[in-house]
Write a protein that binds this DNA or RNA. Structure first.
Lengths: 145, 145
DNA sequence: TATTATACTACTAAAACGGTAGGATTTCAA
DNA sequence: TTGAAATCCTACCGTTTTAGTAGTATAATA
């Protein structure tokens, strides 16, 4: 029941980009240095974010990345769903071709459905801008509802 | 971000025991047959539940297991925390000896703290008895808050 | 055309997952 | 007292996922 480094690093990368929204294209090596993440590994995460149209790329000299929209238009939920490949707590909830044969009478399914909902609702309620704002106001007592 | 079979099977085993609360000790082979789970694998899950004092064991002839308390005294949260080894969405939140050096200025930590809270709050709000009750009333629209 | 950057693909060590296998131990009934 | 029924314990094992590293190709520009 863990968020992998892929999702965590992606979130940190996008926060980093949000903090440098007005600095043009940001090179991956700068993000990697600031966030202390392997640049090579970030290179693998970028295509996922690109496919989800979460960032804009500029190749070649003085290239790099920037956000494709303002920071308040990104939710943590969509970032994590893209990088983690969904946020369902159990496989049964993903729309795959093979449905669980026990699903019909399954007593635990409603538990997982509800859990999926609270997770998504919570993460969709936080934007990149919220995270930036919280950084400034130091006495903000987290995101605990 | 998945609950493993260990947690899911443990929950199903305890639900099964809850459904047979008044039938004395229930042999593992019966649970395994009803739930269609490998008995050998369940044998590995049982010690975890025993350490957490979630069930009572009777060894030898006509032995088996039963719940150690009434079904309404079990929350899904405590069952999953025991079997999954905690429900933190990131390692940083677990009280280990080595604390993340980035923790102090970490912008994502409050997100994970909040996520951990909504997950635990939700799962601690559901008891085994709730699950039994929901089985009876067929029109109950899940546990969605 | 040299330099700086991203893009793509392959590889890999280590850990976690999801079990299986086999024997030891306990209990009780016949 | 012995044998059957049950849990207990520990080792093993194939597969998948995780968390990267490495190397080369491609693009842009000064």
């Amino acid at each position: 029941m863990k968020i992998s480094t892929k999702g965590r690093y992606a979130l940190r990368m996008l926060i980093d980009l949000a903090e440098h929204q007005n600095d043009g294209f940001i090179a991956l090596k700068d993000i990697a240095a600031r966030q202390d993440i392997s640049k090579k590994y970030l290179e693998q995460i970028v295509p996922i974010l690109n496919r989800a149209e979460l960032l804009v790329t500029n190749r070649g000299f003085q290239g790099g990345y920037r956000l494709s929209r303002p920071a308040e238009k990104y939710t943590v939920g969509e970032i994590l769903r893209a990088t983690e490949g969904g946020l369902s707590p159990v496989g049964c909830l993903e729309c795959t071709t093979d449905v669980c044969p026990r699903a019909l009478g399954c007593e635990t399914l409603p538990v997982w459905k509800g859990l999926e909902k609270v997770i998504n609702d919570y993460l969709d309620g936080i934007t990149l801008q919220d995270i930036l704002d919280q950084k400034t106001e130091r006495d903000a007592s987290d995101y605990v509802i």
